[in-house]
Write a protein that binds this DNA or RNA. Sequence first.
DNA 1: GTGGTCTAGACCACC
DNA 2: GTGGTCTAGACCACT
Lengths: 124, 124, 124, 124
Amino acid sequence: MIHLDLRDPRPMYEQVVSQMEMLVARGVLAADEKLPSVRQMAIELSLNPNTVQKAYSELLNKGVIYSVRGRGNFVSGDCTAVRQAKLEEIKQQIYKLRQQAHEFGITVKQWNELLQSLIEEGKL
Amino acid sequence: MIHLDLRDPRPMYEQVVSQMEMLVARGVLAADEKLPSVRQMAIELSLNPNTVQKAYSELLNKGVIYSVRGRGNFVSGDCTAVRQAKLEEIKQQIYKLRQQAHEFGITVKQWNELLQSLIEEGKL
Amino acid sequence: MIHLDLRDPRPMYEQVVSQMEMLVARGVLAADEKLPSVRQMAIELSLNPNTVQKAYSELLNKGVIYSVRGRGNFVSGDCTAVRQAKLEEIKQQIYKLRQQAHEFGITVKQWNELLQSLIEEGKL
Amino acid sequence: MIHLDLRDPRPMYEQVVSQMEMLVARGVLAADEKLPSVRQMAIELSLNPNTVQKAYSELLNKGVIYSVRGRGNFVSGDCTAVRQAKLEEIKQQIYKLRQQAHEFGITVKQWNELLQSLIEEGKL
DNA sequence: GTGGTCTAGACCACC
DNA sequence: GTGGTCTAGACCACT
């Protein structure tokens, strides 16, 4: 279900987090569905249970899952919520890029042309 | 000339690199202009000379500066080159974001709407 | 009669305890009324009998119910007693919060203003 | 600086978190002040470095501190911000208590009388 | 068996 | 030296 890339510079637990978010966002994991247990997931991914635990804690913090002692971890919301959150996160990142562009002396005109060209690409 | 932010989570040498690039891109530093020596820069910024050396090496790698043994470091190109490179770099980063959006089940339509809304904002 | 929330992070037996207390406090369960047996309750709530047993033991400890060997469990007091006990418990918890507030350097004035504002809200 | 209570049912890392928050809120730790390193703190408290690391991560999440690789952890804001956040947190907890009281059949009148009596106590 | 906490000891990037 | 990640193995409370 999840594939880890050892060459990816991001820590393992973060890869798990983003892939789980992805699965929820795409509706592969429905609301209130039970996730694999910490130990089982650790075996599947050849990771230490602590690492998986950290990933699950992060997902808990982000509100993507909820966890019940002795019963397991479960998906908390439906796909739209996570997808919307991601869209907002991406928007913030583009704001940062725009800020960088501005600091490098790139004009608003050049910036808008870049975005426009990206939209054109998308329409193909 | 350069202002370091201690709260910035990025490593110091990386902050130096991006600010130097910025100064070249904005034309504050012209082509073939001599940069402060590693030691002088280290004193000005209250940094360890090793840190500044690492920043200069990075800039050398990126081709932003060139180094003449025994004479010092000099800006290699003019502002347009660096600016163009930055624009390309930003474009690549937006490609990554688009890829992420796609993996989260965000449609091309939603993506283009996002870009369009950003263009509208820029026109204000 | 009792509704369990799987998303509630509290252990199941604790949810049973607080809901039983609630039912007594509201007078839904009168004094000396017989409670469902552990097994029957377990079936109704789809819980393990051990879990229900733990809840009943807790209620016994708190003096909310009494148990007669071979006959079953019964509500011990009337609603006012439980309600009064709850009120006292809440008071103790607010004391703890006040203590915390004090440790965080929140003044008595700020604290009283908070309580006052809550009273005002309640009057609406 | 920090005192741990082994009898406290809360996990060690959480005790560290709340005590650090307290120190910032009371102005004992000023903005941008450096905290003891993870390892040093671990020695002082006779804890494993990982446990301290977890506490610091939590404080990072809450925005109470910021951390710079290779340099250390630092207090992020001044006392008023943390104090205000704590006040809001306490308010939310009292809301929960009010909700509980309501479910136990305690009237708004009784509730307000409780708050009023607490205010009177505070004036002594 | 489940999640959550903790210890012990290791490695890496950064300063 | 610093923070951050990871492994290995343990204990506890809850179901």
